[in-house]
Design a protein around this nucleic acid. Structure first.
Lengths: 190, 190
DNA sequence: GTCTATATTGTGATAGAC
DNA sequence: GTCTATCACAATATAGAC
């Protein structure tokens, strides 16, 4: 039976994930990560060949954790419209818990204008996963595929707009407004 | 009569504005700014006491230029609904011209999680100016003040959502989708 | 007001012992 | 696999001459 101990690699990734999100990627140095993780610099570079590789792992981690938390939050919600609406509640709860630091993936885009392929793929992967999530739900609520697609796009725009404005204002109000707009849109369906 | 020559201060600010937006604030060093502006380091610090002061001037500059360009673009558009809709067109044109680098103010928020008061004020100033712009137009198109306020908020969310997604995808499609959603919302008014 | 030269600290990354 | 020690370079900012 394997030990339950946290591996060094995992410890580094957890520390980096916290610091990258709270302080920003460019403002977090390798030195601070190894200090707070309590490991040697060479240990970090053994597990992650470069800071960008560590960033990539950080983005995948955040993506997975967010979706796991969302599905858990929606566990007992079956109606597709309610699942969409409650996703906005979850988003607000999640952002507040992370001190209104915003979406890790959107932030990385702003921090790395000339991002490499690895980072680009990680960000687009998350965005497409979110887009698909909304699309599948609108298709359950609206038979007309074209209408469902348009609706999903609008919801996704309100979702990201609310996310960014909550980061700016450090308050849940924008996502609540976005939620009300979505409720209104969904109530128009026959 | 004063000389038309560009002052050193203005030259520094122009260079910094270009670099901050294209490369990011944290990835642009003072050294690169003075190199490309062709001035000495002490000259920069004479006009701008710190990099953060230069950042503040950069944000105000971007804010003013964007609004001047918008009002010029809307010069011959009188109908409030059309002014709202064409603002989305202008946004897409402006973002494309800036190589899909996104909104300077939203980006700074992501680059400086623990931003100082000066930066915070500059960002909120721009956001409130945009919010007020949309609100005044919806109040012209809809007499019910409460409905107009809700509509303006939704439009603003679609505006920022489209802006951020255009930055992610480096494409105008999200803002076009946002525009279609706004057209739909405005057509529902009596 | 603009310059050169420098101070101090931090960056990402690597070599080589164990 | 993890460590210590160190590399080469870039960061923001300042002192003092002119």
């Amino acid at each position: 039976m394997e030990t339950q101990e946290i591996t060094v690699r995992e410890h580094i990734l957890q520390t980096a994930t916290r610091l990258f999100h709270d302080q920003g990627y460019n403002l977090t140095g390798i030195n601070q990560i190894i200090d707070e993780a309590g490991v040697a610099k060479a240990s970090l570079y053994y597990h992650f060949p470069s800071k960008e590789d560590l960033c990539e792992a950080y983005l995948h981690r955040r993506n997975n954790l967010w979706f796991e938390g969302l599905l858990s939050y929606l566990k007992e919600v079956e109606d597709p419209r309610q699942r969409i609406i409650k996703t906005f509640d979850y988003r607000a709860i999640h952002l507040k818990k992370n001190h209104w630091g915003g979406c890790s993936h959107i932030k990385i885009i702003s921090e790395m204008p000339q991002r490499g392929e690895k980072i680009d793929r990680a960000v687009l992967l998350q965005k497409e996963k979110q887009r698909k999530f909304f699309l599948e739900l609108t298709e359950q609520a609206e038979e007309n595929k074209k209408k469902a697609a348009t609706l999903a796009e609008t919801i996704f725009l309100l979702f990201d707009g609310g996310t960014v404005q909550c980061q700016v204002y450090r308050d849940a109000a924008p996502l609540q407004a976005a939620k009300r707009a979505v409720v209104s849109l969904l109530s128009e369906l026959k």
